[in-house]
């Protein structure tokens, strides 16, 4: 089963989507609408977002691409809900920068609280998986708490969704094809099998430091194949058997409108 949050017919709804793409609301109502309909506005799929953990350089080939040694322990940074946006929504490119790239990532959504969770038990704490695009702006990198908040904590630069797939429906999260297209052209073609630290390892690691809680999310990093993105570009991040996340880039001025 898949789970999402949408606005449909003026109502904000929590929905389940079955194997035949049939949509049922949490009230038990069946919606007569196709998943690709423009009548659906997709919201970020986690209803009460908690702490978002993201991994840097968690694929060996991406580490090489960025001229880093693969890390010996996870490189983790934190993000908050201001960065989230949904499927088919917009993300912005800040003014006056040279290089902003997508990062297609598998996300594990935490379903129950735990501390000191053992690796072999870790998936019991995962409600499901989704896809995110953890955009980065390389111009803003500085060597202090790198990647710093100016790079990774901006409004709208963590599209996620469209839905969460139950953990039980993904027998092996480390054997999934991962691709990104920009304006229909394939730019990233990898597999979650090349992840350095997998979800159970990361859960064991983080929960030795702190309590994980429902609604927390772990964004697991991206493989080789990043390119600069410009306003007007449409970026689609896909992970096999999980979902495809579409994002359109706009300028900073367009995004902030009156507040620009």
């Amino acid at each position: 089963m898949r789970h999402a949050r949408i606005i449909f017919d003026g109502r904000e709804l929590d929905i389940d989507i079955d194997a035949n793409d049939r949509i049922t609301t949490s009230e038990g109502e069946t919606l007569d609408v196709a998943l690709d309909s423009d009548q659906i506005t997709w919201l970020p799929p986690v209803k009460e977002p908690g702490t978002i953990f993201a991994l840097g350089i968690n694929y060996a080939d991406h580490a090489t691409e960025l001229a880093f040694e693969p890390p010996k322990e996870p490189l983790v940074f934190i993000k908050h809900a201001n960065t989230l946006t949904g499927h088919k929504q917009v993300s912005y490119r800040p003014d006056g920068i040279e290089y902003q790239h997508y990062e297609c990532e598998l996300v594990a959504v935490i379903g129950k609280s735990g501390k000191n969770i053992k690796r072999e038990d870790a998936l019991d704490y995962v409600a499901g998986y989704t896809v995110c695009n953890d955009f980065a702006i390389r111009d803003y990198l500085e060597n202090y708490y790198r990647p710093n908040l100016r790079v990774k904590s901006r409004d709208s630069l963590l599209p996620m969704g469209p839905w969460i797939v139950d953990t039980a429906d993904i027998p092996n999260a480390n054997a999934l094809k991962l691709t990104t297209t920009v304006n229909g052209k394939l730019t990233q073609d990898g597999s979650t099998k090349d992840m350095i630290f997998d979800v159970p390892f990361i859960i064991e690691y983080l929960s030795k430091i702190m309590t994980l809680n429902p609604g927390d999310m772990i964004c697991t990093g991206t493989p080789h194949g990043i390119v600069d993105c410009q306003p007007g570009d449409t970026i689609v991040c896909t992970i096999e058997d999980v979902c495809s996340l579409e994002t359109r880039m706009v300028s900073e001025q367009k995004f902030y409108g009156d507040k620009y």
Partner: peptide
């Protein structure tokens, strides 16, 4: 570090 910070150095204390 290579050079002193040019921007405020920020970190989060998350909800836990």
């Amino acid at each position: 570090y290579k050079k002193p910070p040019t921007q405020p150095v920020l970190y989060y204390k998350p909800r836990n």
